[in-house]
């Protein structure tokens, strides 16, 4: 194995100005989004207050898809260029994506209890979302199971590319499987869909969605991604330094021979 492991530049101690701006924006926007969703938006006539979970449920899936998409692009870039930073970004993408996907699953489950009268059902959409989470959990297991860092990065990149199939599947499955009970928000829902609602029926619903969507689908994932990426760069640099220190006596012994 070649020892020439190129390491990306250690991120500066001080966060870049744009990141600091994102921090402030996210911290301010999250309570604002919650206020609009929980207080400002009108109560849905048929579903009641539980419908408010939707403002968090749907945008967080797109946030997860964005983060997983980042991991996908970073993995492709790693396989082409073989620079460690891309792999570090893929780690950030998968972890942030998995977190948001879990927010999506849990909020959906809580909503489904009163609306579908069950926490969980083996509906195609629900199944594919769960499989998506499991695929990325398997990615984490795979990554932890390989000792050689270059091999770990390479194989994790390959699997991250494959795993994105499950994201696409989850996105399109309510359009190709007509037997789903999961409502579609944009466009017509499936015939069997339970718990659909009209965006225009209640005042404030569209506003609440328009406010919360960029927060959960864009702002929060981007801020988290950036922080996790910086952290991963530091971890990689630490590993590198550790390896150098641990190998120093070995090289000294070799040099004196």
């Amino acid at each position: 194995m070649s020892q020439a492991i190129e390491v990306c530049a250690l991120p500066a101690e001080r966060q870049p100005r744009l990141l600091r701006l994102l921090n402030i924006l996210t911290v301010l926007a999250l309570p604002l989004g919650l206020y609009v969703a929980l207080v400002h938006a009108g109560t849905d006539a048929s579903q009641g207050d539980v419908q408010r979970l939707f403002y968090l449920h749907m945008p967080s899936f797109f946030g997860a898809a964005l983060a997983f998409g980042g991991a996908l692009l970073a993995s492709i870039a790693y396989l082409v260029k073989r620079e460690t930073c891309y792999d570090s970004f893929a780690v950030a993408g998968v972890e942030v994506g998995l977190t948001l996907a879990l927010v999506n699953l849990v909020s959906g489950s809580i909503w489904a209890r009163p609306i579908w009268n069950t926490w969980w059902t083996w509906d195609p959409r629900l199944t594919s979302a769960a499989v998506m989470c499991l695929t990325y959990a398997a990615w984490l297991v795979l990554r932890n199971g390989i000792d050689n860092p270059q091999q770990r990065r390479r194989l994790a990149s390959v699997y991250a590319i494959l795993a994105y199939v499950t994201v696409i599947l989850t996105l399109i499955i309510i359009r190709i499987r007509p037997d789903t009970i999961h409502p579609a928000v944009i466009g017509p829902s499936a015939v069997n869909a339970q718990g659909s609602f009209e965006l225009a029926a209640t005042p404030g619903v569209t506003t609440a969605l328009l406010v919360n969507f960029p927060i959960w689908a864009l702002l929060l994932p981007l801020t988290l991604l950036w922080h996790r990426y910086r952290l991963q760069l530091r971890i990689e640099a630490l590993e590198q330094r550790k390896a150098l220190v641990l190998n120093a006596p070995l090289r000294a012994a070799k040099g004196s021979d």
Partner: peptide
């Protein structure tokens, strides 16, 4: 673990 989700 790797195959089952992707093979779904």
């Amino acid at each position: 673990v790797l195959l089952l989700p992707v093979a779904l």
